[in-house]
Each structure stands twice: as structure tokens, then as C-alpha cells.
């Protein structure tokens, strides 16, 4: 995340958020809305429902920003996790689950949106290529865990593979994603 002059350090931004500073929350919204909405709309459809969820998530962040621990990880990671966990809880406790049940594995292929998150300085075409270069089994594991909140045991059952294979495939997939940041 590249921060503008307003918040040269993430902890400055966080400090302002904790003070319930409006400008800080506007900054937060403007910079992270696309990333968070992308995750949500991947998990919850239609888009109107996804927007309701983004609103819920943002209100959650507003109330719980004090719980963010900068020593543990970056704000972006925290926001992604708050979002994912909220969606997973929602999916598991509602009918949305049933609507999503009939999706085939092909549907799990991420929809690449042109409105890429602007804060990140990576080649967009390279990104797309990379995500598409994940083999289907790797992608399914990541999607099941990341977007559907499956545990390793659940993934092993659904895909009918041993637990050890779940681990190694998850690792192989993320290693591939990591090369995004290794290439200049």
C-alpha cells in the first residue's frame, strides 16, 4: 500500500482512525474499497448484497479499529481478514450458502476486474497471468479456504485428497502468488 503525503506512515493513519477522524476514514474507504469489495462480491452475490456487506464491514472496522495490532501485520491484511471472516460467517449462517452451492469449479476461477487496486505497483497483465497460471487444484484450494472459509479438513474431504496434500498444494499456490512481488 502506497501512502500519500497525508499519512506517510501506516501508524499515523491508524492513530487518526482510532480518533474517529473523518478524513482518515475517507482515506481508508477510498483506498481499500475496491480490494474489499472485490473479495466480498466474490463471496456474496448479487452486487447489491455485496455492497450491503461492504457497508457492514466498514462499520465494523470503524468500531474495532482499536483492535488492530500493527506489530502483528499490516492494515491491509487485517482489513482483508475482517472482511473475509465477516463474509464467511454470513455465508455460513444464511441462505446465501445454498445459492452458491451449485457453483462448479470452473466458476471458482477468479473474475479479473480491470479496476485493479490502485495502491499496488505491479504489472496488471502479469498479475492476471499469474493467477491464471495456478493449476486448477491449487486454485481450488486457495479459493475454498480464502473465499469460502473451508478448514484444511473440509478441503481434504471435498477434494478427496490427504491432509498433507492440502498443505503442500496451498504452499505451492501461494509460492506462485508470491512471485508477483519478487519480479521487479
Amino acid at each position: 500500500m502506497i501512502l500519500t503525503e497525508t499519512y506517510t506512515e501506516e501508524n499515523q493513519l491508524v492513530a487518526s482512525l482510532i480518533k474517529k477522524d473523518k478524513a482518515a476514514f475517507e482515506y481508508l474507504y477510498d483506498n481499500y474499497k475496491a480490494a474489499l469489495f472485490g473479495i466480498i462480491s466474490r463471496m456474496i452475490q448479487p452486487d447489491e448484497a455485496a455492497e450491503d456487506v461492504l457497508q457492514d464491514v466498514f462499520i465494523k472496522v470503524y468500531h474495532n479499529i482499536e483492535k488492530f495490532d500493527a506489530t502483528k501485520g499490516k492494515l491491509y491484511t487485517w482489513l482483508l481478514n475482517v472482511t473475509r471472516n465477516y463474509c464467511i460467517d454470513k455465508i455460513r449462517s444464511s441462505d446465501i450458502k445454498n445459492q452458491n452451492k451449485n457453483r462448479s469449479i470452473d466458476d471458482l476461477v477468479p473474475v479479473i476486474n480491470n479496476q485493479l487496486f490502485t495502491g499496488i505497483s505491479v504489472d496488471h497483465i502479469g498479475l492476471r497471468k499469474l493467477v491464471n497460471s495456478l493449476v486448477p487444484e491449487q486454485r481450488e484450494i486457495i479459493e475454498r479456504m480464502y473465499f469460502e472459509g473451508y478448514t484444511q479438513t473440509e478441503v481434504a474431504e471435498v477434494m478427496n485428497i490427504p491432509l498433507g496434500t492440502v498443505k503442500t498444494r496451498a504452499r505451492a499456490a501461494i509460492l506462485k502468488l508470491r512471485t508477483l512481488f519478487d519480479t521487479p
Binding site: K22, S41, L80, K176
Partner: peptide
């Protein structure tokens, strides 16, 4: 790596959403 994955999925919500959300929050 996972952030990159999230970034690949980025998608803009409708512009009206921002006001809707901020109307529900109060600020110092």
C-alpha cells in the same frame, strides 16, 4: 502473496455507497 490475490479481485462498488456508509458513522 495473498494480498496480491485480493488485489487481483479488486472491484469498484457503486459511487453512491460511500455517502450511504458515511451517513451511518459519526466522527470527532
Amino acid at each position: 502473496g495473498l494480498e496480491a490475490y485480493a488485489t487481483v479481485h479488486a472491484k469498484e462498488p457503486s459511487p453512491a455507497l460511500k455517502d450511504k456508509i458515511f451517513s451511518k458513522l459519526s466522527f470527532e
